[in-house]
């Protein structure tokens, strides 16, 4: 059984259809597409921030569409939101603790905390600093670490490369890969950067105007000229 099954998902904002009849299931997936293709809307619908108009979302056989975000987190879906949204006026430690808010098990929380610090040693060095004083790359690590603190089975990443230098992006993505490989956490990676997305996933979808226009293994998609067409809107 696939972890997440999405079928016939639709969402519109005031008549403008953002996501239209989307269906897929996921192991390690990346979704690419130009601005306004509906990528973020899709992720927000899965996490429960917005409610779908139509369609179903099943996670491990349980229907989760329309649930409140705090309920969906408890099912084991956590998200690294777009633009590294950390809590800037809270310390690194407090940010991580908030990630484990839904976990009422202090032993598990301590294990997750150790795991995050061993994955991102840089966060350990800055544990008492306010998150707002971290560099962009460190904030992204914190956002990922915070999502891992929720003990996810499925991790949603919304444009982790946004606003980061190529070197930092590379570092972040090698960490993301190792999390996926070693911890066995499923992932949906949403990216504008098609090159990065196809390098770091198994399956890639191209989203355009709320519809999936192309699907394939990431290796195939990497050299598919239709991907570029989708971006240019031809």
């Amino acid at each position: 059984m696939k972890a997440l099954e999405v079928s016939g998902l639709k969402k519109s904002f005031g008549g403008v259809v953002a996501v239209d009849n989307i269906s897929f299931s996921v192991e390690h997936l990346s979704i690419i597409g130009p601005n306004g293709a509906g990528k973020t809307t899709l992720l927000k619908t899965i996490t429960g921030i917005i409610k779908p108009l139509k369609g179903t979302i099943e996670f491990e056989g349980v229907s989760i569409e329309g649930l409140k975000p705090e309920r969906i987190v408890k099912h084991g879906i956590t998200m690294v939101p777009e633009g590294r949204r950390v809590f800037p006026h809270l310390s690194v430690k407090e940010n991580l603790e908030l990630g484990a808010y839904a976990i009422n098990n202090s032993r598990l929380e301590a294990e997750l905390f150790d795991l995050v610090l061993s994955t991102f040693p840089r966060l350990g060095e800055r544990i008492k600093q306010l998150a707002g004083t971290l560099s962009g790359g460190e904030q992204q690590m914190l956002a990922i670490g915070r999502a891992l603190m929720g003990n996810p089975k499925l991790l949603l990443l919304d444009e982790p490369s946004m606003g980061l230098s190529p070197i930092v992006t590379k570092e972040i993505f090698s960490l993301i890969d190792s999390i996926n490989r070693e911890k066995g956490i499923s992932m949906i990676l949403v990216e504008q950067n098609a090159h990065i997305a196809t390098e770091h996933s198994h399956i890639t979808f191209v989203l355009e105007n709320g519809r999936i226009v192309l699907t394939g293994t990431s290796a195939e998609m990497k050299n598919n000229p239709r991907v570029i067409e989708a971006y240019l809107g031809v």
């Binding site: 987190v73 998200m79 949204r85 908030l98």
Partner: peptide
């Protein structure tokens, strides 16, 4: 919104 994603 971000807080609700933490499970709050």
């Amino acid at each position: 919104e971000l807080s609700s994603l933490m499970g709050i």
